[in-house]
Design a protein around this nucleic acid. Structure first.
Lengths: 208, 208
DNA sequence: GATGATCTTGCACTTGGTGCAAACATTCAC
DNA sequence: GTGAATGTTTGCACCAAGTGCAAGATCATC
């Protein structure tokens, strides 16, 4: 059955299935970007991908899922990036650098179009926020893996939530940035400011 | 012709409409809790509320909306609670106390059942997270109203995001609490710990 | 090439949701 | 009161998402 890697033991069947899945995804994204999500029917997607409507649902459980399928890779990449940070690095720094690294390598042409699509489609926004929740869960997992002791794990849960907040707010600020700006540089400044603000909030909340 | 029942401006028309809306909501929630969200059809809800299916959609845009309609009140309550805090109180404290106050007054029998329902229904979870986003937006708004200057407003945006994170994590911890515990007391301890942790993260992130 | 496993498809069906126009109720002006 | 204007409810036809099922097409293997 399934051996080590893809190309080695991938028979005709598996190859075709993968190809079909990609063809459907391609067809769907093309149509979504052309006419919008709501104005595209599953029948049309199936038509363009040259499969039946029934088969479409054999590859993707819902129409929405086609849009969000690729995003799973970001979470995985983030996990890797964090895991590969030196163990002695403080968690806050590890997560910052892991996040920026995953972000930089995920910012391609397609992603931007996707983001735009989601922003313009109310029906997709709810699902989009679920993605944040899933990402936060994965982030928590990744951070807990580095933690020692239960108390530390609790703190990591909190750190994940806070960093996700930073990610959302950072995204907003980034969108207000003039085009062509350096993402890494922006992120560096944003995080520097972020930690300072965090410390200020923390101190103010702690006293009295 | 007894008009002076409670409100001068509410004629028969408006009263009936409000009553019908409440009847639908009641019928829907009853059925959802009895058999679950997915296993309840709009036809059944309409049947029990003694209106046509078509009329159901005249009162609620979607089946989901019936579940989330009441929750809007929480956001409003939170806004009020924050607005009514003394102006000289630091923002972090104002938001903490406002949140706890809104939370305490929102914890009734029905809300708990609702929360449970959402948790057990995948189809509702996405929408639930959208609710968090909306709440964060309102919170941002409420905090910015207290801010002076653009820099302060940016910090408030960040504070809103962070506090929403605290709300989510706090909710998780609260669910692990033995039943019968005091929500106010729990919140007090949680926030005390929260600010300290925040300060620690902030400091660690700031150095180097 | 026969055989069993897997993939694809067509078809019928359920459900959520919308547009429309006719029927009905309420309000208000005379 | 009569009647027009306006708002509400309903039935009906319709579209699109999604599912279960069974028959037919493909594929791996012996």
């Amino acid at each position: 059955m399934n051996k080590a890697t893809e190309s080695d033991t991938e028979g005709r069947r598996e190859r075709k299935r993968r190809e079909t899945r990609e063809r459907i995804q391609q067809a769907a994204m093309g149509l979504f970007l052309e006419r919008g999500f709501d104005a595209t029917t599953v029948d049309e997607i199936a038509e363009r991908a040259d499969v039946s409507k029934r088969s479409f649902f054999d590859y993707f459980p819902t129409k929405e899922e086609v849009v969000f399928a690729w995003q799973d890779r970001f979470a995985d990449h983030l996990m890797e990036a964090i895991a590969s940070r030196p163990a002695e690095e403080p968690a806050v720094k590890a997560v910052q650098h892991g996040l920026v690294s995953a972000l930089v390598s995920a910012t391609d042409e397609r992603s931007l179009a996707l983001t735009e699509l989601v922003r313009n489609t109310p029906a997709l926004r709810a699902r989009d926020h679920l993605k944040y929740a899933k990402l936060e869960a994965k982030l928590t997992e990744g951070l807990k893996a580095r933690a020692k002791g239960a108390a530390e794990e609790q703190r990591m849960r909190l750190l994940a939530a806070i960093v996700m907040g930073a990610l959302r707010v950072g995204g907003e600020r980034w969108n207000e940035q003039p085009p062509g700006a350096s993402l890494e540089e922006f992120a560096h400044h944003f995080f520097a400011d972020f930690w300072v603000t965090l410390a200020a909030f923390g101190e103010e909340g702690s006293k009295a």
